[in-house]
Each structure stands twice: as C-alpha cells, then as structure tokens.
Design a binder for these strands. Structure first.
Length: 428
DNA sequence: TCTGGGGTCCTAGGACCC
DNA sequence: TCTGGGGTCCTAGGACCC
C-alpha cells in the first residue's frame, strides 16, 4: 500500500510576511491579491477576528482600524523563494515528491525506516528550524486522504502537534472523525457539489465515503467517483513528480486605474504577451494561436459593460515575442471599442507543441527562424541575469497608468541585495 | 477610489466522416 | 408508414484546485 504525505505551510503568505518582521508577531495581518484588491491570506489572529477569505480590502477598513489589522501587497518574489527553500528541505526526506502548489507538496514515504508519525514530526521540525515556517503533515494511503489528514492535523486533531497519520488510527476512530468533518473539506468537492450532495443527504466525509461509487458516478461524474474510491483507501491518483508541460499559458492583470484608449490597452497586452512568451520558451514550446481578452469592470454594473476575446491563429507556430505581440495586437485592434472603462486585459497562448518535434514547413525560412531563436535566447538570458524587464519590446510602453497597485509591499528580503535584512550594525 | 490570476479535467452537443 | 450505426474532433461551458 502506498503512503502519501501532504505537507502544507500554515497561512503561507502571512507566515512569510511575519518571518522577517518580528514586530508583527501576535499582530493580525492579511495579504492582499494583486492591485491590493481582496484578502488572499490571513494570519491566525486575523482568522480569529473573523476576516473572511476573499473579502475586498476596502470593505474591511472599519474592522482593520478597530483591531489594528495590517495588510500587505502580494510579495511573490519572497513567497516563491521561501517556497523553493521548503521544497529543498522536503527533498531531503524522499526523492518522490510532487510540488502541488506554492505551499503544498505530496511526498511518497513508502519504505522509509522509522514510524511515519516520527517522520512527520521530523519534517515539521526541520522546516521550522531551517526556514522558520510552520507546516502541517497529513499521512494516508491516498492523496485525497492525505489532504484530509492534513486538514485534520490543522483543525479537528490540532492536539496532535500538526501531524496526522490515518494509517495509525483504527477504523472506528476514523469513522468517528469523518462523521465530524463537513464533506466540503474533501479535495474535489467545491461549493456546487457540496450543495448537490446536501440535497441527497450527504453532508459529512463519512457519508460520502460510504456512498456506492457506481451510484455517485451515475448521479455525478467519474471524477467524484474517483474521490469516493480514494476516501476508501483505493489509490487512483498517482504522484506527478515530473510536472507535465502546460497546455495553455495565461497572462492577465486587472489595471490599477481604468484604461479607456487603445494605446494603454496595447501596452498592457504587449506586456502580458511578453511574459507569456517567456514562460512558453521556458518550457521549450511554441504556440499555434494567441487569444486576447479585454473587459470592463463587472463590479460596476451601472457603467456600460464590454467583455470580449478573440483567437488569432498564427501562420506558423512560434515562440518569438515579436510575432506573438503582432498577433495579439491585431486581435486587440479588432475587438477594441471606444467608450468603455476597461479594467482588465490578458492573453492566452494555446495550441502549444514542443519546439523540437515541429514539422518542417515550406513557409518557414530556416535562417530567419534561427536568428529569431538566437535573439529570444539572448533576451531571456539578459533578463535572467539583470532582472525581468531589463530588455523588453518597446510596445510594452512606459505608461504607469495601467500598472497594478502595490502600495503595501514588503521588501524582497531574500532576493535583492539592496533589500536584505540587516540584523545589527556597528556605529562609529 | 477600491473586488486576483492562474490552471486542469470532464461532459454535452454539433459537425463531419464512412 | 418509413430514414442506421459507429466513430472522431472540436468547442463551449461547468466544475474543481490553489
């Protein structure tokens, strides 16, 4: 029987913010989405105050003032760096590891010496000692159960010091626990499924676990059927230790201020295309089409609304930023309409295929293609060495109007020499 | 003034094929 | 009166995840 562990950082973004600023200890803090829009992470103190996940920050002003809640802009440079440090530590326990998200990893612990509970406590201690972040560990025979065990370690069985191994619990104990956990906590059960399950009298994990899989498949789908099997200890989801190549690549952002004219939209679309193209080349793929999207602000229904996208196929699949921008801007000109306050623009690259396996085409000049590849590689290397955006297409512009708001950004403590924390200094 | 940004998978339905 | 059976591919939409 396989043994999966799910290691999950507690309140990850909020914990990262607290890590380098001791004055924040015991202070309620939240981390905001891009444009300082809504709450995407809360410290334990903020949760205790009842700050809801996803709440718009401007609606929390009163509560924040009352309790001294501090808010931070998303500092992805910091979170990504801390995340990779945690993963590095986890790799010290097992080579079979899947990075599931920025703050979660699945580990396969089969055949390791020592008790699983002891390994779990080791993981917790090592991460806490080496990088200072709190994690919880859930251990079970399937991924879905490991997720649930992790949840139990955080909530229902918080007394177990952040480690929960379902394998060490008896069937009655497990059933009693499952009868206390709402079915919505199960990985793969979202709001809609929760509602539909409730109508059928399934409200707890235990009730879903004990439902006949065939019946679930009939009433719902093969996806939920798989979830039921996983809850019964039948492993259906394998560890994906090699991340599969993306099938589509998105880049989009809301604007810090509304944009009205084509020029502003063009600059943002060119910027998004540039970022998407970097990701595309990083996975060594080419794209067959570019989708460009623009929309007004749906939270202002009293203003005229406009929401449109267009797919622009490329004559030949490409990873050349210039060609992708040309296609995106052609699509943008086609769908742009005057008279709207635009709130968001984005591009999506699709029809992705590996760069190398491409079929030769009579329409492609090999010499030109080589020059393109060399230029893109040079640009990527310069930007890697000197920082993103050091060398960029002119079409991405200089207008700050549409760029996102980040008024509460903490320093890039670990990724910029000029922002590294200073512990003490000798004065003369 | 102010409301995120990515992704995946599955299903149904239509077009089209022989 | 009466109009098959099987398949593929594509797209849109809905659900989920963090």
């Amino acid at each position: 029987m396989p043994v999966f562990a799910l290691v999950d950082c507690n309140n990850f973004y909020a914990s990262c913010e607290k890590l380098f600023d001791p004055s924040l200890r015991d202070i309620p803090i939240v981390v905001l989405s891009n444009n300082d829009g809504c709450v995407v992470a809360r410290s334990a103190e903020s949760k205790a105050l009842g700050v809801p996940m996803g709440a718009p920050w401007f609606q929390l002003q009163e509560l924040a003032k009352q309790h001294g809640i501090r808010a931070f802009s998303s500092n992805y440079a910091l979170y990504a760096d801390m995340s990779s440090r945690v993963v590095e530590i986890l790799r010290g326990f097992t080579p079979s590891l899947e990075v599931y998200s920025i703050d979660e990893s699945f580990l396969v612990l089969d055949g390791l010496p020592g008790s699983l509970d002891a390994i779990g406590r080791d993981i917790r201690e090592r991460v806490a000692t080496w990088v200072g972040l709190p994690v919880c560990v859930g251990i079970a025979s399937t991924k879905t159960l490991a997720k649930l065990a992790n949840h139990a370690a955080k909530k229902a069985l918080a007394g177990r010091k952040g480690v929960c191994d379902f394998g060490a619990m008896g069937p009655d104990e497990l059933s009693a626990l499952f009868a206390r956990i709402p079915v919505a906590e199960v990985w793969g059960v979202g709001r809609r499924l929760d509602e539909r399950l409730a109508e059928l009298g399934i409200g707890t994990v235990k009730e879903l676990r004990d439902a006949p899989p065939a019946w679930i498949r009939e009433r719902f789908s093969v996806v939920l059927e798989r979830t039921v099997r996983e809850l019964n200890g039948v492993s259906c989801l394998d560890l994906e230790d090699v991340a599969p190549a993306k099938q589509q690549i998105m880049a989009s952002r809301s604007f810090g201020n509304p944009v009205f004219d084509l020029d502003g939209l063009s600059e943002s679309v060119a910027s998004h295309t540039t970022r998407a193209a970097e990701k595309l080349r990083a996975q060594r793929h080419v794209a067959g089409a570019v989708t460009v999207m623009i929309r007004s602000n749906p939270f202002k229904p009293w203003e005229p609304q406009y929401n449109r996208s267009e797919v622009v196929p490329l004559a030949e699949p490409s990873a050349d930023t210039r060609e992708l921008i040309r296609a995106a801007l052609a699509g943008l000109r086609h769908i742009y309409r005057e008279g709207y306050a635009y709130k968001k623009a984005g591009v999506m690259l699709c029809g992705l295929e590996p760069q190398l396996r491409r079929q030769g085409s009579l329409l492609v000049d090999p010499e030109r293609e080589q020059r393109s590849a060399a230029l893109m590689e040079a640009m990527d290397r310069i930007n890697e060495r000197w920082g993103r955006g050091s060398l960029r297409p002119l079409a991405t512009g200089f207008d700050p109007g549409w760029r996102m708001r980040r008024e509460r950004l903490s320093p890039a403590w670990t990724t910029r020499w000029d922002q590294i924390p200073i512990v003490g200094s000798r004065s003369r």
